[in-house]
């Protein structure tokens, strides 16, 4: 059973309504409570629960790419028997924040973020140097979708 099945209506309500637009007032949880028909204490407790069961990464900001630094999506094509080794090398860099294996000829995909372009390039070059693999550098050029959060269908 997924965690989703164990969530309370209040917890689901928070996920449905507050992935964006957190109230910018002194008592935001009281404001959210009013909208959701709960108490401030209950909202706080629901957030604590959501974090405890791993659903909530955090309550916070998602920053628009390239507005506070530079980042890129990168990929390498690693021979099958080197995937674990190459992934470990890439994970080693603190500037790498996402790293996934994907079922494709380019099988390792990762995101590099830094304070500026130069620091991101430096990481890509260093990864090429340490793995001997050519890195595909695919920085975002245009965003068509504003991330408004994720619409969950409660089953």
């Amino acid at each position: 059973m997924s965690v989703a099945a164990t969530l309370s209506d209040l917890e689901k309500g928070l996920i449905d309504q507050y992935q964006r637009g957190l109230p910018l007032v002194s008592r935001p949880y009281a404001a959210m409570a009013e909208t959701l028909g709960a108490t401030e204490d209950a909202v706080i407790q629901a957030l604590v629960n959501l974090q405890k069961n791993g659903v909530l990464s955090r309550l916070g900001a998602v920053v628009t790419p390239h507005r506070a630094g530079w980042s890129t999506l990168a990929a390498v094509s690693a021979p099958k028997d080197r995937v674990a080794e190459v992934a470990a090398v890439i994970n080693d860099f603190p500037t790498v924040n996402h790293n996934y294996e994907r079922d494709h000829h380019y099988n390792i995909w990762f995101v590099v973020a830094g304070s500026d372009k130069a620091s991101v390039f430096e990481t890509l070059r260093a990864i090429e140097g340490r793995t001997g693999l050519k890195v595909l550098d695919l920085p975002m050029e245009e965003a068509f979708h504003i991330d408004l959060g994720f619409k969950v269908t409660w089953s």
Partner: peptide, 25 residues
């Protein structure tokens, strides 16, 4: 379409040593 078969790492981005914010690259 490329599916992820394994997650090696997922955390907030560090834009500098003192500037760690999550982005959606």
């Amino acid at each position: 379409i490329l599916f992820s078969s394994r997650r090696f790492k997922q955390c907030g981005a560090r834009y500098a040593q003192r500037r760690k914010v999550e982005s959606i690259a």
